[in-house]
Nucleic acid binder design. Structure first.
Lengths: 190, 190
DNA sequence: GTCTATAATTCGATAGAC
DNA sequence: GTCTATCGAATTATAGAC
């Protein structure tokens, strides 16, 4: 990517994208208006349309998430759950795209489909490297996603009282064994 | 409640409420319009305003959720997690208010506050009856909520592929031990 | 109680001057 | 590339006739 010579308007595009991420993360898809995003970026609303065509494509660009999952095979096999939990917590503590996707995915079908794609292309392959039977990777990845997304929902979106105040290390300590079970348990009942 | 003599318009109120639950559950707070709700209920949009004043109060009435949590102290103490998981699955398989609250809570602040209240008044007291130290009930309830809400999000809202197709019994089998740990484990690392 | 008509906003998107 | 002006549609909410 980053094709050819850098255009003079790349800075404006980046400013729009940054503002879009914040608005989508804070208000969801429908309530985040192009006018407000443009105001945050300090430009004219027309520019947003000129660069991204319409609101849907702007969201698609803003919600282009890279989970940056680590290589789980490098390290103690009995700690993959904790390492995965720590990674997600650290990744979200100061990163808006995922919150934007989560908040928007609740009401926007396109956002939900995008989440589906991210899990399939990024999480499932990594899960397949550590679970006993690779054919179970989709199911195990879905279980991992349910706990990880649920934690993100409570901590960053709903901001449920006890969950938001918990230190990140405590959350990691609680979620780690859960993910470990979802990833590697031979049987649900363990 | 059900104060005094039953009014003649109670049927209309109930029809509005049922339609509102479906729309809020399917489309979230912003996209669910009073016009569409009225059309579903087979009445005039003005009637919705007349009965509920405004959109916010209509949502408040539609999202008045009763978790109907069972008495966890009646039964084997080592199966409280599985029983709680089974209860939530069965409760949501054909009940819209919770999905409405979940979908709307992602973008509507009032809905998020309402969820906070439901957990504090309904889930925390039940958790307190089975966890080792009742003072930890809020934290343990939050952990339970994170997994339960995450599962509901994946299964009913985002409809993530492997999770939606899983039989309810399988989901219960996987979530049960997780909830058991959140409810009763003396230490996170178990 | 019920409905028509409409007020008052707000939004996404477009046309066109400079 | 940037901005002004505006269109057309949709929304919540209200006023008032019957």
């Amino acid at each position: 990517m980053t094709h050819g010579k850098p255009r003079r308007s790349d800075a404006t595009r980046a400013a729009i994208l940054a503002a879009a991420r914040e608005r989508f993360a804070a208000e969801g898809y429908e309530r985040a208006t192009i006018r407000a995003i443009a105001a945050d970026a300090g430009i004219d609303p027309t520019m947003v349309m000129r660069y991204y065509g319409n609101k849907e494509r702007l969201f698609a660009a803003a919600a282009d998430v890279d989970l940056r999952l680590p290589d789980l095979t490098a390290g103690p096999p009995d700690q993959v759950g904790t390492r995965l939990a720590r990674h997600f917590l650290a990744r979200w503590e100061h990163d808006e795209p995922m919150a934007a996707l989560l908040r928007a995915g609740a009401t926007n079908e396109a956002a939900a489909q995008r989440m589906h794609g991210i899990l399939a292309t990024q999480l499932v392959p990594v899960v397949a490297t550590v679970c006993p039977d690779p054919s179970q990777a989709p199911t195990r990845a879905a279980l991992v996603a349910s706990q990880v997304l649920g934690a993100a929902l409570c901590r960053y979106v709903l901001r449920l009282s006890p969950f938001t105040e918990m230190p990140a290390e405590d959350v990691t300590a609680w979620l780690g064994p859960t993910l470990q079970r979802y990833l590697t348990a031979l049987d649900p009942m363990v």
